[in-house]
Simulated scan of single mutants.
Amino acid sequence: MFKFLIASALLCFSIVATAELGNGGRTNIDVYYESLCPDSRNFLVNQLAPQWKTLSTFVNLRLIPFGKASFTRSSSGAGWSFNCQHGPAECNGNILHACGIKYSKDSTQALSFASCLMRAPTSGAECAELAGMDFTPIDACHKSVEGQNLVQVHGVETLSLQPTLTFVPWVVYDKVFDDTKQWSSLSNVRSVACSHSGFNAPACLSNGL
């Protein structure tokens, strides 16, 4: 009977520990951003990308380019028109980011492409090559209704966020927005991600966090 109770306790502990780490023992991070936003650039280039080798061991990352934009159905009835915080070039950039994300094989490739574009917004082909991607489908997507549809879907998701997005980038852990984690992530995303996971992620433990 005693052995049964010990086994049951260990099983419960295992279930709780897994739950603390989000989906399948991993933390989900959703980043809502804009292609020409300086704060978005700083976060992707100086936080996410440099820390991704560690974060990727326990984080599932989603990049959602849209931010404080809006959209309307185009006058032709096919595709969408966008109004973006930093002008038409940002709307165009959001579409390029969305197409690259769609045609990436994983989060590592998507982040490599996106962070490169944040540094060089018009260098789609070069960023695709750097990320090990074929630029042909990305370019075709970018120049067609396909890319517009991708960003419109991002827009529907972004505009339905609760609480409402008020700053870009908007960083959400496991589908629950936390104001403290949002602001702390902008300067130390690895520490916040590790803290959110309960420091149970091997990468956090091995780095003495």
Score class of each variant (00 low, 15 high):
Ser160His: 04
Leu96His: 00
Thr158Pro: 00
Pro202Leu: 10
Leu150Met: 06
Pro163Tyr: 08
Leu44Ser: 08
Thr27Val: 14
Ser76His: 11
Trp80Asp: 04
Leu209Gln: 14
Ala19Arg: 10
Lys53Tyr: 09
Asn83Cys: 01
Pro202Arg: 15
Ile138Met: 12
Phe113Cys: 03
Cys204Gly: 14
Lys143Tyr: 06
Asn83Lys: 11
Gly147Ile: 12
Gln47Pro: 03
Arg41Cys: 07
Ile29Ala: 03
Cys37Gln: 03
Ala131Tyr: 07
Ser197His: 03
Phe135Cys: 04
Cys99Thr: 04
Leu111Glu: 01
Ser81Ala: 12
Ser74Thr: 00
Asp139His: 09
Tyr33Ile: 08
Leu150Asp: 00
Asn42Tyr: 14
Asn42Ala: 07
Leu36Asp: 02
Gly25Pro: 04
Pro163Asp: 13
Ile138Lys: 03
Ser187Arg: 05
Ala7Lys: 07
Ser104Tyr: 10
Met133Trp: 00
Ser195Val: 09
Ser70Trp: 13
Pro121His: 12
Leu205Met: 14
Pro163Met: 11
Pro88Lys: 09
Ser185Asp: 06
Cys12Leu: 15
Tyr33Gly: 04
Phe71Gln: 04
Val16Ser: 09
Thr72Ala: 12
Gln109Ala: 15
Val171Thr: 13
Phe13Trp: 12
Cys127Gln: 10
Tyr103Cys: 07
Glu146Leu: 13
Leu111Arg: 04
Gln152Thr: 13
Met1Arg: 06
Tyr32Asn: 05
His142Phe: 10
Cys99Gln: 00
Ala9Gln: 12
Phe66Cys: 14
Gln109Lys: 15
Glu157Ala: 10
Gly132Leu: 11
Pro137Leu: 11
Ser8Met: 11
Val168Ile: 13
Gln182Leu: 08
Leu61Lys: 14
Ser160Leu: 08
Ser70Val: 06
Thr54Leu: 03
Thr72Val: 14
Thr72Gln: 10
Gly93Arg: 05
Ser115Gln: 09
Ser74Phe: 10
Ile101Gln: 00
Gln182Cys: 03
Cys116Pro: 05
Val189Tyr: 00
Thr136Cys: 04
Val172Ser: 02
Thr158Arg: 01
Lys102Glu: 12
Ser14Asp: 03
Ala49Ile: 03
Ser74Ala: 15
Met133Ala: 10
Pro169Ala: 02
Thr166Ile: 13
Ser56Cys: 08
Thr18Phe: 06
Ser144His: 13
Ser197Asn: 11
Asn94His: 10
Ala131Ser: 08
Gln85Val: 05
Ile95Pro: 04
Gly87Met: 08
Leu55Ser: 02
Arg119Val: 14
His142Gly: 15
Ala110Asp: 00
Ala131Phe: 07
Cys84Asn: 01
Thr72Met: 02
Leu10Ile: 13
Leu44Met: 15
Gln152Trp: 13
Cys141Lys: 01
Tyr173Gln: 02
Leu5Ser: 09
Pro163Lys: 09
Ser8Asp: 02
Gly147Lys: 07
Leu48Lys: 02
Asp179Gln: 15
Lys143Gln: 12
Ala131Gln: 01
Thr72Ser: 15
Arg73Gly: 10
Ile101Lys: 02
Ala125Thr: 14
Pro121Thr: 08
Lys3Asp: 12
Thr136Asn: 10
Val172Ala: 01
Gly22Trp: 07
Gly155Phe: 01
Thr27Tyr: 02
Leu159Asn: 15
Glu90Asp: 05
Ala193Glu: 00
Ser74Trp: 01
Leu159Phe: 06
Met1His: 15
Trp52Phe: 12
Gly93Tyr: 00
Ala7Cys: 13
